[in-house]
Design a protein around this nucleic acid. Structure first.
Length: 404
DNA sequence: TCTGGGGTCCTAGGACCC
DNA sequence: TCTGGGGTCCTAGGACCC
């Protein structure tokens, strides 16, 4: 018999909004935007105008994450929007995980503002889990200035569900023996892994609560959901054996996409942006000391229909120019000459090092030289900033800078 | 001034091989 | 005369998460 697991899920309340609130306060702002009608929103002029986080008051007005600022404003005329500051968010995120890693090495970073902690493994050191949760919750607030929710359960899934029960600054438990009472009554839409498409289908099948799904017939359900049916039913029953994975998991891919300031249909406008994106992704790749075997261009037309077009390379690369050239080709192959609103590049199948396939046309020495040059460019950028060097046109660099 | 960006995982069809 | 079948790789698209 295995020891019962105790998992924490720790989730920053309204992360982006809380962190921006702290940023403003430290800069002398007179009031706390967490207490007002406020949201973090992208820039509407550059067509990034969606809600990224909202205050409890804004939420009460019906403002939801992901909707346009235009709609949010309609629902909540008093709302004020603040721009995101990703560097500051990253700083706070790191500070949080560092604080927690002081107590346990078994922490899985799930996103910028949430993580799992395997408490079962350290319980003998710190005692009762509820008391410990209270202690770290207070420590986070006292030292970092923001509140978190903590879910305590016997699995990652239930811990995650528990941390979402009510907010902010709460601790909830969802032990296996509490599943019927606390999980089953919730709408099926609330279950982790059930998104808009799936929940719509489930409702059509007369499955409305998590309990309905938990008791659904797997054979019947697999007619509609294939292999995912069993998984869904397990989740509804609170069954999840997945482990807390503490090591920094290897990235599977690297991507960078951008919404264009306006729809574009001329390659003279599009290619400089693709060049800037090539520089971005290849620099990240080289920073990780990786090579990519697959290059994909991603684009979205003005009707929001998205396309990907990819190619597996004979020889993995980390070269800016190779990535740019291949991306251009891929784009021209896949593009139907409709105006596009978004473009980007994704690198996949990352490997540590390369053994070059012998190819008649591969000039080994030249390739090495180009790589060295790319590294030199990276170094100069590190010292003097992105705008110091690069073939990208002004437009490309300006766009790039906006993202950093 | 309507609709972000960075990820992961899954599926399905076609090519190709034995 | 009627036309395998299993495994793997590659590509495109979709669902979901924060």
């Amino acid at each position: 018999m295995s020891m019962e697991r105790i998992i924490f899920h720790i989730d920053v309340n309204n992360a982006f909004l809380s962190w921006t609130a702290l940023d403003l306060l430290r800069k002398g702002y007179q009031y706390d935007i967490r207490e007002s009608y406020a949201a973090i929103g992208g820039d509407e002029k550059s067509r990034r105008g969606i809600v990224l986080a909202k205050s409890p008051k804004a939420k009460k007005c019906g403002v939801t994450t992901g909707e346009t600022l235009y709609i949010a404003r309609k629902k909540c005329p008093a709302i004020r929007f603040y721009p995101p500051n990703y560097e500051w968010y990253q700083y706070n995120s790191k500070a949080l995980f560092q604080l927690l890693s002081h107590y346990s090495p078994d922490i899985e970073v799930a996103s910028i503002d949430e993580c799992y902690l395997d408490y079962g493994k350290v319980k003998n050191l710190y005692g009762d889990e509820y008391e410990f949760a209270k202690k770290i919750q207070k420590e986070i607030f006292d030292t970092l200035g923001f509140t978190v929710n903590i879910g305590i359960a016997n699995s990652k899934l239930c811990a995650k569900m528990a941390s979402d029960f009510s907010k902010p600054n709460k601790i909830h438990t969802l032990y296996n023996w509490e599943i019927k009472e606390k999980l089953f009554p919730l709408p099926v839409d609330d279950l982790f892994g059930i998104g808009k498409q799936t929940s719509a289908k489930l409702h059509r099948l007369n499955i409305h609560t998590i309990s309905d799904l938990a008791h659904a017939n797997p054979v019947e359900l697999s007619k509609y959901f294939k292999n995912s049916a069993t998984k869904m039913i397990e989740w509804a029953n609170g069954i999840d054996d997945s482990e807390v994975i503490s090591e920094e998991t290897e990235r599977k891919g690297i991507s960078n996409t951008t919404t264009l300031p306006k729809d574009m249909s001329r390659t003279e406008e599009i290619f400089p942006i693709l060049q800037a994106i090539s520089e971005n992704v290849s620099t990240s790749l080289r920073k990780k000391e990786k090579y990519a075997s697959v290059i994909a261009v991603i684009f979205k037309d003005k009707f929001f229909k998205s396309y990907t077009h990819q190619r597996k390379l004979e020889n993995p690369t980390c070269s800016t120019s190779v990535i740019f050239e291949v991306s251009k080709e891929l784009f021209l192959e896949g593009w139907k000459r409709e105006p596009i609103r978004l473009i980007g590049i994704r690198l996949d199948q990352l490997t540590d090092h390369v053994t070059y396939q012998s190819s008649l046309f591969e000039d080994f020495e030249e390739k090495k030289e180009q790589e060295t040059l790319d590294f030199v460019v990276d170094e100069i950028k590190k010292k003097f900033g992105d705008q110091a060097i690069g073939k990208a046109s002004l437009t490309g660099n300006q766009i790039k800078r906006k993202f950093d």
